[in-house]
């Protein structure tokens, strides 16, 4: 199967997705933000729909759109007069509905919805790879420079404040990076696969390690194993790639939960 160029590119894409989602996913899980990541991912549909309607590259419109939604939520979540859970559900359904509504105005684009739900890792272009590389660079730079601040404010926000850390700023940066990751990966992996990538490997990894760095590395390795095995499975058995990856991750999580207690 490796003689095909699209397969080679898909494997490179999996490698890059694994790096990005291991770093962001580790903190998504540690900060108990899995439902927030899910809402941000689904809100991206609004931006994608807008991009299609305007005949522009949907990803380029979805990036600022999703970052704006994530930034708004990060800044105003405490001031909202409704519970955080309700606000997230509203963001989730708003993004999806807006996206599908806007896509509906463009004839022939109904298939796009399914594409963005499960992605098409076998149809990755070189410009997608470029975008992923750029966001990996930005994410690693932010986490490399501010790792202690991000860890401290994720673990104990009040203590971080007393240490003089601007936790609101780091909260905002993290939301923005999560939004960026989600949109960059949406075309390649699809919304459902992204949520699995961001949550399942870190949930498994944290049972085995004692440090954040090791958790990131183990999540990366798991992401790689899940995506490679999912692709191989889909190639030989003619199965859809995204759902295959998700099912392998969930099966592994189930087995780990049964055999590896804390």
């Amino acid at each position: 199967m490796f003689e095909y160029r699209f397969i080679q590119i898909a494997f490179i894409a999996s490698l890059l997705i694994s790096i990005l989602s291991a770093v962001i996913g580790t903190f998504v899980v540690m900060r108990k933000m899995t439902s927030i990541a899910g809402s941000i991912a689904h809100s991206a549909f609004g931006g994608l729909g807008l991009g299609l309607l305007l005949n522009l590259n949907p990803v380029y419109i979805a990036i600022p759109f999703t970052m704006a939604v994530a930034g708004f939520f990060s800044l105003f979540k405490k001031a909202m007069r409704i519970s955080e859970e309700s606000a997230l559900t509203i963001i989730w359904s708003f993004g999806m509905s807006l996206g599908i509504l806007l896509m509906n105005f463009k004839a022939g684009f109904s298939g796009e919805v399914l594409g963005y739900l499960f992605g098409s890792i076998l149809a990755v272009s070189m410009s997608d790879i470029g975008l992923m590389l750029a966001s990996i660079l930005l994410t690693l730079l932010a986490f490399g420079i501010f790792s202690r601040e991000i860890v401290l404010s994720s673990f104990d926000e009040e203590f971080a404040i007393l240490c003089g850390i601007n936790t609101k700023l780091f909260d905002l940066i993290f939301y923005m990076l999560t939004a960026l990751t989600v949109v960059i990966l949406i075309k390649v992996a699809g919304v459902l696969v992204i949520i699995a990538f961001l949550t399942i490997p870190p949930i498994i990894a944290r049972r085995f390690v004692k440090s954040i760095l090791k958790m990131i590395f183990l999540s990366f390795a798991l992401n790689l194993v899940f995506s490679f095995s999912g692709m191989i499975l889909s190639f030989y058995f003619d199965l859809p790639t995204g759902p295959s990856i998700v099912m392998i991750s969930i099966l592994t999580l189930f087995l780990v939960s049964v055999f590896k207690r804390k």
């Binding site: 540690m30 202690r148 401290l152 673990f155 203590f159 850390i165 049972r207 004692k210 954040i212 090791k214």
Partner: peptide, 20 residues
């Protein structure tokens, strides 16, 4: 503290964070 008990930090990491 509103902490995740699964947070992968050791006692030594937490103590060191006091020196931030």
């Amino acid at each position: 503290i509103k902490r995740d008990s699964d947070f992968p930090l050791t006692v030594r990491d937490i103590m060191l964070s006091g020196k931030y």
